[in-house]
Design a protein around this nucleic acid. Structure first.
Length: 822
RNA sequence: GCGAAAGUGGCGGAAUUGGUAGACGCGCUGGAUUUAGGUUCCAGUACCGAAAGGUGUGAGAGUUCGAGUCUCUCCUUUCGCACCA
């Protein structure tokens, strides 16, 4: 046993030696002074939650593989890392364990940085930043004051989840079954004045530029398009005598003659007004306000409504139309009211049926259509029909009716055509302590005033007491009491902090201008930007990626960056699921890679993780693969050492190789070509691992002790080590040095020897009626006639021709021949 | 509810442009080595069938000489839904 263990390669010690070398030599620190083309590889920075989980391991390994591959391809690679350090969990920890959020966050950063270094990620640590550093957030505050002065920021009231016991605003995830997570009190909706940034001013541009993002997955672009939700419709008013009337937006003005009621949100002014004199309605509105503000929760509710007792007039017929409150109408979206056409909208149809409201059919399928025309069983929602029961508009199709009705409304001054977006302005106020203070001073005389540049940053005090009731900032008059920068009168600071998406919307640019003290960003950001490859979880497909794109355009319009989009290419990763882990007994730390690191090492974890699934796919992680990866790596090490022990090798004499030597060379160069394509274009690393495994299987079978045999084998081993090095950098660092006496950090990805790829025979499949009946080997590019001729004579093939006629022969060169018989 | 995607052996997955389904690995089975266990090495392993052969990529339909791949319907799972990050 003793004897065996001393012969085994010590992967763990080798990893530590290599990591020490990287650290001592600052191997991955980069500068802008390089003749190599730049490549900015960025992986979404983590929230410092405490320790890494397998999702982090996957994300950062994938990013590291890309960075290391691009270095091998001769690029000057920026690969930075930092910490998305503000946020809710630090406050929760502060309440639970009585640790100040700053301390808790710093300690988490320390331990996660250690784990990242132990995993061998090739980060440029000199550029590390945390968003809770005043040196970072001061520039965010500075930038905010710039866009504030530009008029891109405004205040309006918005609804939040309010915990009446803890006197605190709750995040959606803190509301569980309608109750506060700590107090268990039923939540209430509350209206608060909040800051918004006008992302809708950029809606058209954010939408249009999606078409130019060739390096983004189609599905992400589609989700963003749908999120922005551009539509063309008509904004119209249902007038009310003695009132303002109700404004609604519709994309289906063609169905206006079928509008039989109007539905408003429970927070709509008309509903609130009506409830003053209607106790039952007031009750209903209160009930609606007990649901948390998340759209998904509202949409899942049973559809409930109540008549407000009010009517408005139909804009074209003047007929009275009842106004209902409906719990599924969102106040945040549009005007908070919709016209209901139960004949042609399924949700309206169900609502009308439930409450006995009239359903009128105003569109019917065209003659000869096979669409069902009866609306007794459900709404007819197709736009392919023609109008009926619509007076002068009868007989018009969708476009005709859309235009005629829009014209009629415009003529009456009750409506106009409008382009609408589903996208809403970005609410950036949070009633939280652990965030970046919003640099605004409220003055009774001057109103809200931006903090002047020389007074920035507005520092977040870190000596705070946490009791879980409200934000500590609101209890610190010594902090919020100040003077107005304009009139010098008494004034108070804004006590809300920024949404943490603010910090994560520009960190990629700051990494490039690392540590710049004179400016938010400098010319180095133009050198490195835009990010060439951005890697991160698919859960960020919309919010983070949309806000960052928006912020980039804001920075561009301030002259801070010279590009239109921040991220050239995007890799949206699937989730690492852990249901199996949850069921295991070691649930507490099963997601923590530490014990795997201590037992098997970084390379084994990295290899197992990359081999487990392609990057864009979600999968359930299991520790099993790590042990077998470690075993495989040890075998690789042993194979290389045994080979080296046999001495030096001659040059390969390409013209005089045996068939076996040619075969091994072909597999070697096929592996090289495939790895190049998989790393660089397909971003599929699991197949790189299997290709190298296959190559090594060939090497193990290769028994040729001639000098040329050794030379061919050495080439194979060298390619295996080089190709695998982005995934398992430590062992490959050691083995590359053992084989070549040189550092792999200086190595350049070799060219494929096209000659080595040539085959002397190819296999052609013979099918009869699409079923495989035989195979044959022929020289490459053998002519159709010849292949067909041989195929017909094959034993297993010609018997299918008995009593049949060959109707057709399909021929795919070098692949197959298919006889269609009957 | 709305938007987006995924579904292939016992398991993770491969099949890149519509052209041999199951590469590679795990697990399992058998063998060699070992006092034994483990390790290591070798062989086998989609399913049914004695074989010939047949069946097979969530279910059902369709297009095609040919479908895991394209189209439609349905089922299930995952992600997002604006205060988790």
């Amino acid at each position: 046993m003793e004897e065996q263990s001393t012969q085994e390669p010590d992967l763990l010690n080798a990893e530590r030696d290599v990591q020490r070398e990287w650290q001592d030599q600052c191997t991955y620190e980069v500068s802008e002074n390089s003749t190599r083309p730049k490549f900015y590889c960025l992986t979404m920075f983590p929230y410092p939650s405490g320790q890494l989980h397998m999702g982090h391991v996957r994300t950062y390994t994938l990013g590291d593989v890309i960075a290391r591959f691009q270095r091998l391809k001769g690029k000057n690679v920026l690969h930075p890392i930092g910490w998305d350090a503000f946020g809710l969990p630090a406050e929760n920890a502060a309440i639970k364990r009585n640790i100040p959020p700053a301390k808790w966050t710093r300690e988490n950063i320390e331990s996660m940085r250690g784990q990242m270094q132990r995993l061998g990620f090739s980060f440029d640590w000199s550029r590390e930043l945390a968003t809770c550093d005043p040196e970072y957030y001061r520039w965010e505050q500075w930038f905010f004051t710039r866009i504030f002065k530009k008029g891109l920021v405004y205040k309006k009231s918005a609804w939040v989840n309010w915990d009446p016991v803890d006197q605190t605003v709750l995040a959606n995830e803190q509301v569980i079954d309608g109750r506060g997570w700590r107090s268990d009190a039923p939540v209430e909706r509350r209206e608060l004045e909040q800051w918004f940034v006008k992302i809708t001013d950029y809606a058209e541009e954010l939408l249009g530029y999606l078409d130019k993002l060739d390096g983004w997955p189609e599905k992400i672009k589609l989700m963003q398009r749908n999120w922005i939700g551009r539509s063309e419709g008509v904004e119209m008013t249902f007038p009310q005598e003695g009132g303002q009337g109700i404004s609604v937006y519709t994309t289906r003005p063609d169905t206006l003659m079928g509008a039989t009621y109007v539905a408003v949100a429970p927070q709509h002014p008309l509903a609130l007004q009506a409830a003053k004199s209607d106790a039952a309605l007031a009750d209903f509105l209160e009930q609606c306000n007990r649901v948390k503000v998340a759209e998904a929760d509202i949409a899942k509710l049973e559809k409930l409504g109540m008549w407000t007792g009010q009517t408005v007039s139909h804009p074209l017929t003047g007929e009275p139309v009842p106004v209902w409150v409906a719990n599924f109408v969102l106040m945040e979206y549009g005007s908070g009211a919709v016209m209901a056409v139960p004949g042609h909208d399924q949700r309206d149809w169900e609502f009308a049926n439930k409450y006995g409201l009239p359903i009128t059919q105003v569109v019917k399928p065209v003659e000869g259509s096979d669409e069902p025309c009866d609306i007794g069983g459900g709404a007819y929602v197709s736009k392919n029909g023609v109008l009926v029961n619509s007076g002068e508009f009868d007989g018009l199709d969708f476009d005709g009716a859309f235009n005629a009705i829009a014209d009629a409304l415009e003529k009456k001054g009750l409506g106009e055509r409008q382009v609408n977006y589903r996208l809403r302005d970005w609410g950036i106020s949070r009633q939280r302590y652990w965030g970046c203070p919003i640099p605004i001073i409220h003055c009774n005389k001057c109103g809200p005033v931006a903090v002047p540049e020389q007074d920035l940053p507005v520092l977040l005090p870190t000596d705070v007491e946490f009791d879980g009731v409200g934000s500590p900032l609101k209890k610190m008059p010594q902090w919020y009491e100040t003077t107005c920068p304009e009139c010098s009168g008494d004034a108070v600071r804004e006590t809300d902090t920024f949404d943490t998406f603010m910090e994560s919307s520009w960190y990629y640019a700051r990494f490039a201008s690392s540590k710049s003290e004179a400016a938010m960003l400098d010319e180095r950001t133009d050198y490195w930007g835009p990010v060439d490859h951005y890697v991160g979880g698919e859960e960020h497909a919309i919010l983070h990626l949309l806000y960052a794109r928006f912020f980039h355009k804001l920075m561009r319009d301030e002259g801070l960056v010279d590009s239109d989009e921040p991220f050239e290419k995007l890799l949206a990763l699937g989730m690492v699921l852990k249901d199996g882990v949850k069921m295991s007994k070691s649930a507490g730390d099963a997601g923590d890679p530490q014990h795997l690191l201590d037992t098997y090492g970084a390379d084994a974890i990295r290899m197992a993780m990359m081999f487990a699934a392609p990057p864009d796919q979600s999968f359930e992680w299991s520790d099993h693969g790590v042990e077998s990866a470690a075993r495989w790596l040890k075998r690789l090490w042993n194979t290389v050492e045994e080979h080296l022990a046999q001495g030096d090798v001659p040059e390969i004499d390409k013209q005089n190789l045996t068939d076996e030597q040619r075969d091994l060379r072909r597999v070697t160069h096929e592996t090289l070509a495939k790895a190049d394509d998989d790393f660089g274009r397909r971003i599929a690393f699991n197949t790189v691992v299997s290709a190298v495994m296959s190559l090594m299987n060939q090497v193990h079978k290769f028994e040729d002790n001639s000098p040329q045999g050794h030379a061919v084998k050495r080439e194979a081993l060298n390619v295996a080590v080089l190709v695998l090095s982005p995934i398992t950098p430590h062992i490959c660092h050691v083995l590359f040095d053992r084989i070549n006496g040189a550092s792999i950090d200086e190595a350049i990805w070799p060219a494929v020897d096209e000659e080595a790829l040539a085959r002397t025979v190819v296999e052609v499949v013979v099918q009869v009626n699409g079923k495989v009946r035989g195979r044959m080997e022929v020289p490459p590019d053998t002519a159709r006639e010849e292949v067909e001729g041989i195929a017909r004579t094959l034993d297993n093939v010609d018997k299918y021709f008995d009593n049949k006629t060959i109707r057709k022969v399909i021929f795919v060169p070098n692949k197959l021949v298919n006889f269609v018989v009957s």
